[in-house]
Amino acid sequence: MALGNNTQRSYSIIPCFIFVELVIMAGTILLAYYFECTDTFQVHVQGFFCQDGDLMKPYPGTEDESFVSPLVLYCVLAATPTAIIFIGEISMYFIKSTRESLIVQEKTILTGECCYLNPLLRRIIRFIGVFAFGLFATDIFVNAGQVVTGNLAPYFLTVCKPNYTGSDCRAHHQFVNNGNICTGDQDLIEKARRSFPSKHAALSIYSALYATMYITSTIKTKSSRLAKPVLCLGTLCAAFLTGLNRVSEYRNHCSDVIAGFILGSAVALFLGMCVVHNFKGTHGAPSKSKPDEQRGMPLMAFPRVESPLETLSAQNHSASMTEVT
């Protein structure tokens, strides 16, 4: 009661955060870790045609030699939206005009007796948390696809160096079903079997699209009309080029990259529109408070005298109920 208009007391937010969000997040990260760093999930062994021209592209070297090395890529695509969201939220909070509209959307939550979670903190944690979750979820999607399909990279036959002597491989339509004829480096072959969909494409497009959606729906610049489009298209373009680079370096088929694009944008769109609701304030708040308003409005029209009455009535009714029964 003593709390202000924009403050809301909630005891459930911290337990909910710890026992639901963090558990889900931890599970997701754990699964991504198993996919990425362990051999828990064996890749499906896919057959190939003898002398398949599509799989005989030159080997472009290890991933680190690529134009977009994985380390740089991961750092950039994780840091860019985080930084954009951070800067955007803080500037929104400290610019007066936007702050007011922000506070209307979002309430400060008082949890327990001491902890105030103000809108700035809540929004930053929510958006960045959802972004991180989406990143890991995309990674799981991509890994699951790669492991299940076991699609072969364009340079597979180059690193596999198959030994055709055992098989009848005169015609080009002969399908080699077992992968045991490979004589090349096993690690490289394992990597070459993970191609569909392209991880780089999916992650980069996800990150870029999430950042773009945040910029579009949050940052309102009246003075500069070109800053926002340039920023958005720049990030999207970078992600697009990352995907194309994979194809041009013979690391992925074109279909892999396209599937990665579709996958990443689907995840980003779903998270942006259905989960954080276009980065607006809590979407559920108006609908949730509607019954409260309806309930409270008539009471508010009366002098406050009635609240004790109401509570008393509640007690009495239960008492009378027990009497009757």
Binding site: E21, T28, G134, I140, A144, G145, V148
Partner: peptide
């Protein structure tokens, strides 16, 4: 909307299952 991650995890689970089924 009170939990942000419950919805996506369920949706993603079903999506992955369906995707694997097709793949």
């Amino acid at each position: 909307d009170s939990t942000k991650l419950l919805k996506p995890i369920l949706v993603f689970t079903f999506a992955i299952a369906a995707g694997i089924c097709g793949l």
